[in-house]
Design a protein around this nucleic acid. Structure first.
Lengths: 338, 338
DNA sequence: ACTGGCACTCGACCTGGGCGAGTGCCAGTC
DNA sequence: GACTGGCACTCGCCCAGGTCGAGTGCCAGT
């Protein structure tokens, strides 16, 4: 068990290192934080902290820097989420209020997060699985060609072309549209398959093939691109850490290009609570020197997607967590309104 | 006027420099290209080329590197666009054929371009201005709330919420939908404003406000986001030029984040022909050390948007231009089919 | 007009030495 | 027993000096 003072020392090391980006020594520590003890004492404490694996020396006879384990302790026990100031909150809200559609909401959110945290922002589009159907529209573009438009309660719109086995009449299409909507409007995606199962039976034999095509396309749309899309921004912020440069930036950029990796990253924590993954806690190798702060957001009580930021393990955790939390909250509000 | 041999020397310099990323000297030149003359002669030629501003020395007594002017001459007179090989063409086509919707087409195109050129790819969404309306759909989500869905002939779908001044009946809405579609379906966006101008007059006084709201939202949609969206990818490729690093990568990343800058960049050349902007020819300062190769693409004969790549001025111009041209061609085909 | 030779320039690279931040240890003090 | 001041030691950083070699410009010769 670490004594109270040693925790203070660790906290001071993290804070200083985050500020200066340079290994911090015992003397500098006592000067900048009034710990009430001498450098020599701090040296002993640091030695103990190193023993326990919370800090390390990049090379003999240099200052110490926190390890992943050190940051973990800091985040868990020493850091308070720093709330946004009133003007900041207002700015967030104003900026998001100007959005015209879902794409715009997501785009603005990314920009906002990147600016606030000065890091790389990642925002997942509201997921389909947990959302509900607001409306299904069917449009005959050609005799045997139907466009399916699916509108969700989060404002997301998906469209698909359906090639029908046989031409379909305008009346039949209207009938199908009406029946379909009366069954699925307002229902969860996960419930839809059961609800439409017996729908073809209500139609003439000649139309059943077409109805089946439409339905199967609908069901595909529900599952297929479920969690697929996301938007990132603020990659230029990666260059602020000109320190251990190209070595670390390249794999990070590569990881960011791989949506699969990012989606897995965001998806890892099951619940929508704020999650911080530090350095090697990230499974993907390229992100071993970065931390990911993520949280769920949603239009109602329930989270429909996640957002977060990717930055160096040496980041301002309290500030970042505060910004991420605040942005998630306001995005949720915007979605609920629209 | 430069003699034929001097042009050959310039070509050789560009090719070598692009390959090695190192200043190239007279001796190396004669060894790798059989110019049929001695290094001393080449030295004289290089001296003349330098005089004219086509090449320069990074520091006294080092090899020469091409200047922007040198690349310009190379592109204009010395380089042939390198056509894609048959397997490459097939691969492009196969990859793009798998796309399920417009977003997917654009996303795949970006990936493809980035991979083929090993540079940063930029793809603009098919523009609204030059495309035509395929269908307009109106959905009553609440008594005084209508969702407007606009489908273009390039497969793009835009949606907007319309808050109506008064509740609108289902019949009136159907009427409006029918009238609207009969007027605008198949028409160019630029023609739409005139075509719908007198539409409110066909309705009862109580509904005119609502009709006007819907129309104004429609018109806004047509102009507002006209050229707005684009997608980029392959930023990790920037790190391949580990040479004059953070200095150049930062402003480039920043430029790429600014969609406005990119759109201006793509939009600069009015016609849809292949355009190469080299170094300082780019107005935006951050891109002064990069070249931009762009070309228009479209579903029919006419270009509806542009795509291109951003890379260091020291790039393989023939190969890049070949890849860009090929991708643009196949994307056009895909759009025409869907 | 081209070539071979030659002196010269100047950045890249290596080496060695001094500097200083930071450490670990130990004896001394409260 | 916990803390402190002192001291010797380590080791990366930075600078100066020296060498090396690629590349140049010029000139005399063919």
């Amino acid at each position: 068990m670490l004594s109270e003072r040693r925790l203070q020392v660790l906290r001071a090391i993290v804070q200083d290192y985050v500020g200066t980006e340079e290994p911090v020594g015992s003397k500098a520590l006592t000067e900048r934080h009034n710990l009430g003890v001498s450098p020599a004492t701090v040296r002993n404490d640091m030695s103990a902290l190193e023993e326990e694996g919370y800090i390390a020396q990049p090379h003999t006879s240099a200052g110490r820097i926190p390890t992943d384990k050190g940051y973990r302790l800091f985040v868990d026990r020493l850091a308070d989420v720093k709330p946004m100031t009133q003007p900041e909150r207002r700015a967030i809200q104003n900026f998001l209020d100007g959005a015209v559609d879902l794409d715009d909401v997501v785009a603005r959110t990314v920009r906002l997060l990147a600016q606030l945290t000065r890091q790389v922002a990642v925002v997942q589009y509201p997921s389909l699985t947990r959302s509900a159907v607001r409306h299904v529209e069917l449009l005959a573009l050609a005799p045997a060609r139907v466009m399916l438009v699916l509108i969700t309660d989060t404002g997301r719109v998906e469209q698909r072309m359906v090639d029908c086995p046989a031409p379909i009449g305008e009346n039949t299409l209207a009938d199908l549209r009406a029946r379909l909507n009366s069954r699925v409007t307002g229902r969860r995606f996960t419930d839809v398959p059961l609800l439409v199962q017996d729908l073809p039976e209500a139609f003439e034999a000649e139309d059943r093939g077409t109805v089946a095509s439409v339905l199967s396309t609908l069901l595909e749309t529900l599952v297929e691109r479920t969690e697929e899309r996301l938007m990132i921004g603020g990659t230029a912020n990666l260059t602020r850490f000109t320190h251990d440069f190209p070595l670390t930036i390249q794999p990070v950029l590569e990881a960011l290009e791989e949506q699969v990796v990012l989606l897995k990253l965001l998806g890892e924590a099951q619940d929508s609570a704020m999650t911080v993954r530090i350095g090697h806690e990230n499974e993907y190798e390229g992100l071993n020197s970065t931390s990911v702060v993520s949280v769920g957001y949603g239009s109602g009580g329930e989270a429909v997607a996640k957002l977060g930021v990717v930055g160096p393990t040496r980041m301002d955790y309290p500030g970042t967590m505060g910004a991420v939390r605040a942005v998630a909250r306001y995005v949720g509000q915007i979605l609920a309104e629209s």
